[in-house]
């Protein structure tokens, strides 16, 4: 196996240290999945904190959860699930080499992601007005379940904030993807970036799938 002949005819879009598109593709997917494993553990730390306090202060968490608007949470869940679907449109188009639909898919995903963040923005604003942001400004006038309610809101903001941060990053990356997508950079042979990004976006969706019941739905029947 001669290296020099391979290097001379190195195909476009194949990095110098890979031997084949196949190797490059498998490497980039494995890398992306390992990155997502890392993300699972990152959010996982928050979930462990949540589960610990939820098991200690069930009533306070339920009371805190009742301060959130279930309808807003449900609408945002729907919006985010749809954005995951539009991401699938972009990835499928990339597999076919249909550059127009890659762009449409990305634009739709940006749109739904933007709606989600817009709703979140107003939701945060309302929490601020109701003195539900933890810290010196926090006030609690609800049931007498004690101080751990503030911990619920600490977690609410940390978890949704981290999630929103991941969405902002995702939308930023998609904005940068529009131009190369339109110019036909991604072909059926080489669209690892689009597919890898798709994985990231779906992961962000999964985080929200857990956040919705954990934050918005607890104690709905009892409190």
């Amino acid at each position: 196996m001669s290296d020099s002949s391979a290097a001379a005819a190195h195909p476009p879009g194949l990095a110098h240290h890979f031997e084949s598109y196949e190797q490059q593709k498998h490497s980039s997917f494995l890398g992306m999945w390992l990155f997502l494993v890392q993300e699972v553990m990152f959010f996982g730390g928050l979930f462990v904190v949540y589960v610990t306090y939820r098991s200690l202060y069930g009533d306070a968490f339920a009371a805190g959860s009742r301060q959130l608007d279930v309808m807003i949470g449900a609408v945002n869940t729907t919006v985010l699930l749809i954005s995951s679907f539009t991401m699938v449109i972009a990835v499928t188009a990339a597999k076919k080499g249909n550059r127009k639909w890659i762009v449409y898919g990305l634009l739709l995903t940006i749109l739904f992601g933007g709606i989600f963040l817009g709703v979140k923005y107003f939701e945060y604003g309302a929490k601020w007005q109701h003195h539900l942001v933890p810290g010196p400004y926090f006030e609690w006038h609800g049931e007498g379940v004690g101080r751990p309610v503030e911990i619920f809101f600490c977690l609410y903001f940390a978890m949704t904030g981290m999630h929103a941060l991941h969405m902002v990053v995702g939308i930023g990356i998609m904005l940068f993807m529009l131009r190369p997508a339109w110019r036909g950079k991604w072909t059926p042979q080489n669209h690892n970036f689009v597919e890898g990004f798709g994985l990231y976006w779906h992961f962000v969706d999964i985080v929200w799938i857990f956040l919705f019941p954990f934050l918005y739905l607890i104690g709905l029947a009892t409190h």
């Binding site: 993300e39 990152f42 996982g44 933890p134 810290g135 101080r147 600490c154 940390a158």
Partner: peptide, 29 residues
């Protein structure tokens, strides 16, 4: 490593924004 990362974020939030994740005064652990 990501677990350390998020832990450090929580400490920084508690220090800078007074989010009392581990604050015994709030029942934190």
């Amino acid at each position: 490593t990501p677990v350390l990362a998020i832990t450090i974020v929580l400490v920084a939030l508690e220090r800078l924004l007074k989010f009392g994740f581990f604050d015994p005064a709030l029942g934190g652990d």
